[in-house]
Design a protein around this nucleic acid. Structure first.
Length: 254
DNA sequence: AGATGTTTAGCCTAAT
DNA sequence: ATTAGGCTAAACATCT
């Protein structure tokens, strides 16, 4: 059976739920996170059906983003102003779909109360860090250009092939075992120098999970990695402003 | 003002 | 019959 092409649904409604469509969009992006407008654009580009009645389905999609724990809202980094936050997938939500099929979910992804509280605390700390950074910047001369002024690429985030694989397609995705964030998301913790890295630990076993997605390797926690990375960049800038008060910037996460 | 985000509610369908 | 997932509408809040 030939695999259906990207546009094969034509003006017909594709058989994917909004959750699936949103997951596809997020997955297709190099950073594994997108602002709402980009999610809309992805869906409209690939599925002509959604070029009509935009108000209706976009309302539904926003409802899904807010309602489902599988989507995580990441505050924008302060040097990337714009409307709305970035949306990403919760790393534990990757096996939501039965047999990896995007056509049907295995079960609703629901975080435990404590997990949700922790996540919210992390993200709130991140947001307040951003506010503190902007406030500091407002009262000081602008910092030197940040090292990665262009496209932001999380270090552990592998790139898709330049032309993203057709979506959906059967592929094997490897999920790295969840690991603890190296730093807590508190201002104090972020202002501490990064602890020395121990010798590399032996590779952990991979957990192969078949899903209908482009081939890629997923890190444990995209938003955590992304957030840590940009906080490191911000700290470099802050350090340049107040060199006598702050510890040296963390080592580049290469 | 318009875009974005949150929440509640009701209806439908499929699975259990 | 009950439950869960999905879709839609709508009211409201917040942000740019």
């Amino acid at each position: 059976m030939p695999r259906p092409s990207r546009e094969s649904y034509g003006d017909q409604k594709p058989p994917y739920s909004y959750i699936s469509l949103t997951a596809m969009a997020i997955w297709s992006s190099p950073e594994r996170m997108l602002p709402l407008s980009e999610i809309y654009r992805f869906i409209m580009d690939r599925f002509p059906y959604y070029r009509r009645n935009t108000q209706r389905w976009q309302n539904s999609l926003r409802h899904n983003l807010s309602f489902n724990d599988c989507f995580v809202k990441v505050p924008r980094r302060p040097d990337r102003p714009g409307k709305g936050a970035y949306w990403t997938l919760h790393p534990q939500a990757f096996d939501m779909f039965e047999n990896g099929s995007l056509l049907r979910r295995r079960k609703r992804f629901k975080l435990q109360k404590g997990e949700k509280d922790n996540l919210n605390a992390e993200l709130a700390a991140l947001a307040s860090f951003n506010r503190a950074f902007l406030a500091r910047q407002a009262g000081a001369p602008p910092p030197p250009p940040l090292p990665t002024a262009g496209l932001y690429t999380p270090p552990m985030c592998p790139q898709l092939s330049p032309e993203p694989a057709e979506i959906p397609e059967v592929a094997s995705v490897t999920i790295l075992p969840r690991e603890r964030p190296r730093r807590a998301f508190t201002i104090d913790a972020l202002l501490e120098p990064e602890p020395p890295r121990s010798s590399p630990s032996p590779p952990s076993p991979m957990l192969p999970i078949p899903v209908h997605m482009p081939r890629l390797e997923l890190m444990a926690s995209p938003y955590v990695v992304a957030a840590q990375r940009y906080q490191a960049e911000l700290l470099q800038a802050v350090h340049a402003l107040r060199p006598c008060y702050l510890p040296p910037p963390p080592l580049p996460v290469a």
